[in-house]
């Protein structure tokens, strides 16, 4: 008698082998594996369908109609889309959104990543510091907007102007939210402040995952802290920073709350993003169809940004 059992494994044995609680060997599963998976996924599919798929389909449907206030809707086909791309206000918001998104991502990720690298040299001692910075990520964007309104207020009542005056730089004090460029920069700073916690957290986790032996070897070879940071920590923490870039890009593309609170899109629409345009058209002017078309354009933008990143992550998972 051979020592090796050559019989075919009973149904469910494969699952049991992987550690999942499949039926005991010799017992038939009462439901096929695929049906079980489908049953378990059904609540998620239902929830996702109701909260994501249905609103998207409905928004797409509305985008083909002209709906003004409580008046009777009128089917207009692709007119809303054609109008959008000949509307200088909308085209302006696309440009503003691009500057805002890139600006916020660069500022937030650079600061978050740099702080994460610096904190890695003394992780325990900087834990409170990291917690404080990460806390900004927990503050809602609307609240962040109100906090920064106080900072950017015109006159000495504004914290920034008051500080400039206090240190003898009163000439630099100005109504920060009153100029087209300064308002956009102020908006980027506020949004980056609000977002910096996430890049910090993700980059720090990446830095912490670097094997200690590599850093110790570099130290033994006489590498200086700056060289270690530049040649070892930066490249090896890149995956965390990449995820941070992706998530910050996505949230900045959809920015609305912070714009609404801080600048209301002004002065003279200089800080109006696509998210704010969508709100203004849909909710204050109640051009639901036109606003829905802008929403679909924003959705396409978000998909364009997220698809390559998701594809790459999925490939990595394989």
């Amino acid at each position: 008698m051979s020592a090796v059992d050559t019989r075919l494994p009973p149904p469910g044995a494969r699952a049991a082998h992987r550690g999942s609680p499949g039926p005991a060997p010799g017992r038939r599963a009462w439901m096929p594996e695929s049906a079980t998976a489908l049953l378990l996924l059904t609540p998620v599919i239902l929830l996702f369908g109701l909260s994501v798929i249905y609103p998207v389909i409905e928004t797409l449907r509305i985008s083909f109609w002209e709906i003004r206030g409580l008046g009777r809707p009128r089917f207009v086909g692709f007119d809303n889309y054609l109008r959008l791309f000949s509307d200088p206000v909308f085209l302006g918001t696309l440009w503003t959104t691009l500057i805002f998104t890139v600006g916020v991502t660069i500022v937030a990720v650079t600061i978050g990543w740099t702080i994460a690298l610096l904190c890695a040299f003394a992780p325990r001692q900087t834990s409170i510091f990291r917690l404080m910075i990460f806390a900004t990520f927990g503050i809602s964007e609307a609240v962040a907007g109100y906090i920064w309104i106080g900072i950017f207020r015109p006159g000495d009542a504004g914290l920034l102007n008051g500080m400039l005056s206090a240190i003898g730089l009163a000439d630099l004090a100005q109504p920060w939210l009153g100029g087209a460029n300064s308002a956009l920069i102020a908006l980027i700073i506020t949004a980056a402040w609000s977002a910096v916690g996430l890049p910090l957290l993700l980059s720090f986790a990446s830095v912490q995952a670097i094997p200690r032996s590599i850093l110790e070897a570099a130290y033994m070879d006489g590498a200086k802290p700056l060289a270690m940071m530049w040649h070892i920590m930066v490249p090896l923490s890149l995956p965390g920073a990449r995820v941070a870039i992706f998530l910050t890009l996505l949230s900045s593309l959809r920015a609305f709350d912070i714009v609404f609170v801080l600048t209301a899109g002004g002065p003279a629409r200089a800080t109006e993003t696509v998210g704010f345009f969508m709100y203004r058209e849909s909710m204050t002017q109640f051009n639901l169809g036109y606003g829905a078309a802008a929403t679909i354009i924003l959705l396409i933008g978000v998909l364009l940004v997220s698809t390559p990143a998701i594809a790459q992550r999925t490939k990595g998972a394989k």
């Binding site: 950017f152 207020r153 015109p154 006159g155 000495d156 009542a157 100005q174 109504p175 920060w176 939210l177 009153g178 100029g179 300064s182 308002a183 002004g266 002065p267 003279a268």
Partner: peptide
């Protein structure tokens, strides 16, 4: 100047009159 006016909401204006 126009930058000051564009940065001013009614509550800022009220503060400048009655507080500052």
């Amino acid at each position: 100047d126009s930058k000051l006016m564009y940065a001013t909401h009614w509550d800022d204006a009220a503060d400048r009159i009655f507080v500052e």
